[in-house]
Write a protein that binds this DNA or RNA. Sequence first.
DNA 1: GAGTGGTCTAGACCACTTC
DNA 2: AAGTGGTCTAGACCACTCC
Lengths: 269, 269
Amino acid sequence: MSTPSAALPVPAGRAAAADALPGERIAEGPGSPAFSPLYRQIKALMTRSLQAGEWRPGEAIPSEMDLAARFKVSQGTVRKAVDELATDNLLVRRQGKGTFVATHAEQKIQYRFLRLAPDQPSGERAQRRFLDCRRQRAPADVARLLGLKAGDAAVQVRRVLSFQGQPVIYDDIWLPGKPFKGLTAERLAAYGGPLYAMFEAEFGVSMIRAEEKIRAVAADALAAEVLGVAAGSPLLSVERLSLTYGDRPVELRRGLYRTEAHHYRNELS
Amino acid sequence: MSTPSAALPVPAGRAAAADALPGERIAEGPGSPAFSPLYRQIKALMTRSLQAGEWRPGEAIPSEMDLAARFKVSQGTVRKAVDELATDNLLVRRQGKGTFVATHAEQKIQYRFLRLAPDQPSGERAQRRFLDCRRQRAPADVARLLGLKAGDAAVQVRRVLSFQGQPVIYDDIWLPGKPFKGLTAERLAAYGGPLYAMFEAEFGVSMIRAEEKIRAVAADALAAEVLGVAAGSPLLSVERLSLTYGDRPVELRRGLYRTEAHHYRNELS
DNA sequence: GAGTGGTCTAGACCACTTC
DNA sequence: AAGTGGTCTAGACCACTCC
């Protein structure tokens, strides 16, 4: 192998991605330092392969040796790229078996983004009830957050989650119309698992990370009715913007949580 | 260097820690796999040095080459240990300068654990007002969470944080009496910076990570008075347990946040 | 036994900071 | 120029999984 700073040669062609690469590693911008190490370029190429669907959720990606050959770098460099993708939760390593594309369908990773926990732990699963699923124009605020133009098609889903028979979460969910064409109340009800698993399996949309804004609010008439509390009761308001590859927003979820017997848990470090 | 599985030889003595090491790397428990790679043992030794105060917040630790010599391993192995300590936020790497012990006194890291953000960003700093600082016996629930015996000495601090003249946060803070001997209202008022910077500088207690439980609650009479809202108004209740080295709990903080113009932000991944 | 990821080493060179 | 962390390589061996 030549020096680390040399341009990456274009490896043999593959199905989905061409693995083309900028000719130089140092950005040419005037005075811009913008140095990107080799392993980050590999990481970017691999992210593209994930985004393009060359490797699908749940599947194994090629072995480190194969990737090293494909990208014409040492195994250690591939390893560092995979390490970062694994800590970003895009990949999951399993010693002796291989490296796999992360999936929301996994039993152990299900409800990865749900931070509400019961005060008294109980292995019980959530009961879902869908209130409606409508296709309509995105309101201005929703459009802005989802990166749509005001008036673009969107899908609104509203549902209630119950634990031990008690309604606890009311979710008002907005999805961009384009990638979620064909989403209906029937399909929602038919699919057993978590929403994010369905989005991934049936629409090819993988939620990678999310940003939440949390507040305390007073229950309005609708929320009070749906959640079975008095109007004016304090509820946790959780606005979640979910992002897919490349930090593209693909879901806006406004949740109201009852927190008499549950709490939102968080780890700071 | 001998094989990776060999026991670590005890390096030359140092001031604070003896760097003693278990004779074998594989735990002897019957059938227990408990394999611990070399770099994790190095990490544990370094954590001990941090805990023992051999390296203090803000100071530089020895260079990777020095550490490699001290522990009689390769630089790469030290590097992996330091990498993990850096992602755990115990250390901070600065290329060309060295590796430093993380500190809450740092301007850029200040208020690391405060997740409340204004809806309209404003570079304004918090105004603090201390309501009281009392030395007393820990109530049962506080004692349990702090790992004290019921009735052990504790320090209770209550304070209000205001932003742009508006009271926004009411904190009820409990600290174990032993390590915080000598904490008084006067010293609190005298110290300018964040509480955690003071705890670190004046009591040698470094907060490393924290666990929070968040709820929506109705303001009681006291909270309403202190925060200037109507009784019954929704407030965000944030219970934080802060931990120091070795996951030892050293602070219980119960906060009530007004969220009309602020929100608790969180990143999920 | 073959294949996978995981650890450890040794050495070269690069980028950044300080003197 | 010297010292620090950061990158990259090549090779050996270990731990785990599956056939």
